[in-house]
């Protein structure tokens, strides 16, 4: 009759398999860190170009700052678009947790007077987008919430004066 290995040996094997698996994941994560950062950066650049056009001569991504959210401790990203060192327009990266299935991130573009130029969804939980990718099908409650949060953050920031 085959002898059953001890519980210690069995636990050791499970722990070893788990350790090797964790190592594989962490090595892959470290090796792809730069590529992931690049893809996020280029996505932000693309969204900024779509929202703010080309009427700026700086790199808003390089000058982004963190600003207070109107309703939570979480910070939002503020992207100033300058021409001749003066802010002509700007964008705020906001979010909403009202999207069914998780967090939705959105970039909202503003003119310098605070009027909204437009918004672009950066990431959304898969199940709130219709298969055809119809933008109108994104949960309107979540989009409203995210845009309102960006507007609130702008108002809060503007009370201190935009430079």
């Amino acid at each position: 009759m085959k002898k059953t290995p001890s519980l210690f040996y069995q636990s050791l094997v499970v722990a070893l398999i788990a350790a090797v698996s964790a190592l594989l994941i962490s090595v892959t994560h470290d090796l792809t860190d730069e590529a992931r950062r690049q893809s996020t950066y280029s996505e932000e650049q693309k969204a900024l170009k779509e929202l703010l056009g080309t009427n700026f001569d700086n790199n808003p991504c390089a000058e982004k700052i963190l600003i207070s959210s109107p309703d939570s401790e979480e910070k939002l990203e503020f992207y100033p678009a300058r021409r001749a060192k003066t802010i002509k327009s700007f964008a705020i990266k906001s979010y909403s947790d009202f999207a069914p299935g998780g967090r939705m991130e959105i970039m909202v573009g503003f003119n310098i007077d605070g009027s909204i130029i437009g918004s672009k969804i950066l990431s959304a939980p898969h199940n709130i987008i219709k298969p055809a990718g119809n933008k109108a099908s994104i949960s309107s409650l979540a989009v409203n919430d995210a845009v309102n949060r960006a507007v609130g953050a702008y108002k809060k920031l503007n009370s201190g004066g935009l430079q």
Binding site: V20, S21, A22, L24, I25, H29, T32, R36, S39
Partner: peptide
């Protein structure tokens, strides 16, 4: 899970 997570990380990066 290890292979799925690895695939997930690689796809999200590239």
């Amino acid at each position: 899970s290890a292979f799925v997570s690895t695939a997930d990380i690689l796809i999200s990066a590239y």
